[in-house]
Design a protein around this nucleic acid. Structure first.
Length: 249
DNA sequence: AGAAAATTTCCTGCTT
DNA sequence: AAAGCAGGAAATTTTC
């Protein structure tokens, strides 16, 4: 079942199962969103940004996006149960929790970088023989309707990566911390560690905070980030950054 | 396949 | 002195 497979490998049918389950858990009426917009497999699903979800499912998009993000990160989500308590126990065993006081010290490699990676412990091929939807229309329709705005490539960009760390503090202790949650102001606590993780995600082992921060500065012009001067390692989400507010959750 | 985006890399100069 | 911050320029990679 889809719960045991990474979203990346879901079939279209499994995507639908996930949709249904998510709506059930949140007591939402699944009939109010266009399932046709999700006639895609897990691989495609995972490339969808928050905006994509919003376009595809309106206000439900937020919920779906966060549910999926959770799954991508944790290998499971708090969907089945409302409480994420079970996640905690797993975190308490992190080696870097032993050093909660050091800031910006020498432990980037102590940070278990595997946590950020999408776990792929499962096989894409399971007993899926029976899980084929009878509904294989032609997809690619919904993907097309996303090309409305000027080039707005989806996928996970640096700012989204940063945001997701902020949104999942349980799994990534003390890498980046909110300074002002409602204003969207945050600060890097372990700048080099974050850079290492970013580099790992991009398969670039030579990433540094120096270079990462250059990319961050480019966001100012696009208003994805706002400048916070006078404060080292502090940034603020701008009007074009989506999905970081509590109310978005 | 070509071009636009989004970084990545490098660098000089300033600030804290 | 060390670590950040500012951006320009150019090279690369990723997307569309």
């Amino acid at each position: 079942m889809w719960q045991e497979t990474h979203p990346q490998f879901w079939s279209k049918f499994q995507v639908w199962e996930w949709l249904q389950q998510t709506f059930d858990v949140h007591q939402l009426d699944a009939t109010c969103i266009p399932f046709q917009n999700f006639d895609i497999d897990g691989g495609q699903l995972c490339t969808m940004s928050l905006q994509d979800f919003t376009r595809a499912a309106g206000s439900m998009g937020q919920i779906l996006y966060h549910s999926l993000t959770e799954l991508k990160w944790n290998g499971h989500c708090g969907n089945e149960l409302f409480s994420p308590v079970d996640i905690k126990t797993e975190i308490d065993e992190l080696p870097c929790m032993l050093n909660p006081f050091k800031e910006e010290s020498c432990f980037y490699d102590c940070t278990n970088t595997d946590l950020l990676d999408i776990k792929v412990p499962y096989q894409a091929s399971m007993g899926q023989s029976t899980s084929n939807p009878v509904t294989q229309g032609k997809d690619s329709k919904n993907q097309a309707e996303q090309n409305m705005n000027k080039g707005d490539p989806r996928g996970t960009h640096l700012w989204e990566f940063i945001r997701d760390i902020l949104l999942n503090p349980e799994r990534n202790p003390d890498l980046i911390k909110w300074e002002d949650r409602t204003e969207g102001i945050f600060r890097f606590l372990k700048s080099e560690a974050v850079a290492q993780l970013w580099g790992k995600k991009k398969n670039n082992s030579s990433m540094t905070y120096e270079k990462l921060s250059r990319a961050m500065r480019y966001y100012y012009k696009r208003e994805i980030l706002e400048r916070v001067d006078g404060r080292r390692l502090v940034y603020k989400f701008g009007r074009n950054a989506r999905g970081w507010r509590e109310s978005d959750k």
